[in-house]
Nucleic acid binder design. Structure first.
Lengths: 134, 134
DNA sequence: CCTTGAACCTGTATCCACTACAGGAAGTAC
DNA sequence: GTACTTCCTGTAGTGGATACAGGTTCAAGG
């Protein structure tokens, strides 16, 4: 029970086989047991960790942040305080990005609207890109 | 007049010298004239193009898109139609990203709020990361 | 004119986070 | 035992820069 081949782990997590090996190599994922022949045998803890990594990456945490979260979230370490710091920092980042993108969205949609789509010499989009930063 | 050294160009655009040379190498920026001794001499068109590239990158256009925009926005080529397509595609991308990030923001801020910041065994942030995708 | 120091040159190596492939070994199903 | 899939290691490549080594050129002051 709980013994997973790398292929099974990949299927269960949606992480590529090569990426799993890469994570092991860089120390993000612990080295699993091996069969007599050298094949990796993962257990539930690997499954959980890999899911954690994947999810954190999807949520936009940087690789380094993920690593720190893994260290902090590990076996009963001092948790909340530092984890919270990282999360808050990331949250600020996210809010900044939303602001930036919202401004860009307005700018872009206004520009595209001006653009007839025809074959005219002047192009609002190009103009926008050529003009100085607002 | 209009003769810029690579250093001047870098200062005027905020693009690193190495990056300018890199852009030249990959064909994103035209090869400039040279002095007798081999130093690059850029003109206003290089300045404009480089500013264009920088701005487009800042606005989140992918490197490949920038290249296409440069080709399309070049000397009197068929412009608006295709430029518009790229801009609209990018706009859709931006809107998707805003949606994603907004959801993440809500999720993250709710989680952080639950987190006392103290030194407790359970951590809302870690829990969030460990739970399956919503 | 000549020196000095800043700026520039080429070429190569490094980074990150993966991804891809080659060539071979191990596992599994019949 | 044979056929087939999966897995192994190791190396190389990707993109988009960035960094550095070791040498050359430029420009300003004396």
């Amino acid at each position: 029970m709980g013994g997973l081949s790398i292929g099974e782990l990949a299927r269960k997590t949606g992480v590529h086989i090569e990426t799993i090996r890469y994570f092991e190599k860089i120390g993000m994922l612990g080295a699993p047991d091996r069969t007599a022949g050298g094949h990796r045998v993962f257990d539930d803890s690997h499954l959980r960790t890999l899911k954690f990594i994947k999810r954190a990456r999807e949520l936009g945490f940087a690789p380094k942040e993920v690593r720190t979260l893994l260290d902090l979230g590990g076996p009963a370490k001092a948790c909340c305080d530092e984890v919270r710091k990282i999360a808050v920092h990331h949250l600020e980042d996210v809010r900044r990005k939303i602001d930036d993108l919202t401004r860009l969205e307005r700018h872009l949609s206004a520009t595209v609207e001006q653009c007839s789509g025809g074959h005219v010499p002047d192009c609002a989009v190009i103009d926008m890109l050529e003009s100085a930063r607002p």
